[in-house]
């Protein structure tokens, strides 16, 4: 069994009112530990509702969620304990900062876990380094930092809890290109260093293509597919019809294929595209 597993997970908003809406509909998933997964889907596809089940913020209307082999909500006294295994970074997480100093804000999660001051201190310094916050920033007020720095503080606040699964909802939203690259870079580094499972929710296909190994596509409250990058981007037309965009290079090569250039590869990164063109040229010369 994977680190996250769901059985017929269904969630209904506003049951018994005219606004009743099935946000997640019969989802069966099995995510392996150590995987880095992209979750994509248009606004309202159910992806945000889905991830809130993974740490028990929402209780399924029906179906089950298993984290690390243990069923959520089976034993209510265990809920808090299991919740600490799954760290959830919400959209625009910098808006939840509240402490006087960056240090104290990162400490909020670890303290709630009941860690000793010493252990918390170690983790805070460690994650601050990991997200690229200089030690002198730790004593500053989080409200004095730049937008990108604030976001890294907020992410560090969850990473410091050392969850087995880290979920990030649109972590690059609203940032400039440098900020985007920085956040994606640190997510990759974190994954490489800690080896924990990472789920990256995004509607930026470029971000997803650059970062993840597998992709979960949500559409109209259901899982459209859960597979590796190439198989997902092979369905570019269907993704576009769902209101998602595929990376620009993917579109370019899909069009080239349609024009009669022959190759089997699915292209979603610039480097890959470059190598492919060079290879095709070499084949042509032969």
């Amino acid at each position: 069994m994977g680190i996250i597993r769901t059985e017929d997970l269904t969630y209904v908003y506003g049951e018994g009112t005219p606004f009743r809406k099935t946000a997640v509909d019969g989802v069966n998933l099995d995510i392996e530990a150590g995987e880095i997964v992209g979750i994509i889907g248009h606004t309202g596809s159910g992806k945000s509702t889905l991830i809130q089940h993974f740490n028990g913020l929402l209780k399924p209307t029906s179906g089950k969620v298993f984290i690390d082999g243990e069923e959520l909500f089976a034993d209510k006294s265990r809920l808090k304990e299991i919740r600490f295994k799954v760290g959830l970074v919400f959209q625009y997480p910098e808006y939840q900062l509240f402490e006087e100093t960056v240090y104290k804000d990162i400490a909020f999660g670890p303290k709630n876990m009941g860690l000793t001051d010493g252990e918390a201190d170690k983790r805070i310094k460690e994650t601050a380094r990991l997200v690229g916050l200089k030690p002198e920033l730790l004593d500053k007020s989080p409200f004095e930092l730049s937008g990108g720095q604030k976001r890294r503080v907020a992410i560090a606040g969850v990473m410091a809890m050392e969850p087995k699964v880290l979920i990030l909802d649109e972590p690059t939203a609203g940032l400039d290109p440098r900020g985007r690259d920085r956040i994606l870079g640190l997510i990759k580094e974190y994954h490489a260093e800690k080896g924990t499972t990472v789920l990256l929710v995004s509607h930026s296909m470029e971000d997803v293509a650059k970062t993840v190994s597998k992709i979960l596509v949500m559409n109209d409250a259901k899982v459209f597919m859960y597979s590796d990058r190439s198989s997902v981007f092979a369905k570019a037309d269907e993704l576009t019809a769902m209101g998602l965009t595929v990376p620009q290079v993917t579109r370019v090569f899909d069009r080239l294929r349609a024009m009669g250039i022959e190759f089997d590869d699915e292209v979603f990164s610039i480097d890959y595209a470059k190598d492919l063109v060079l290879r095709l040229l070499a084949e042509k010369r032969r």
Binding site: L57, K80, L88, F90, Y95, F98, F108, N112, V158
Partner: peptide, 27 residues
Amino acid sequence: KIMSAQKARGADMESGNVIKRAKALIP
């Protein structure tokens, strides 16, 4: 949204006495 985010960081808003609960509102 903020409540969910703080809960995800382990904030406990449902237990404890009045003072503890009032303090839990700060975040």
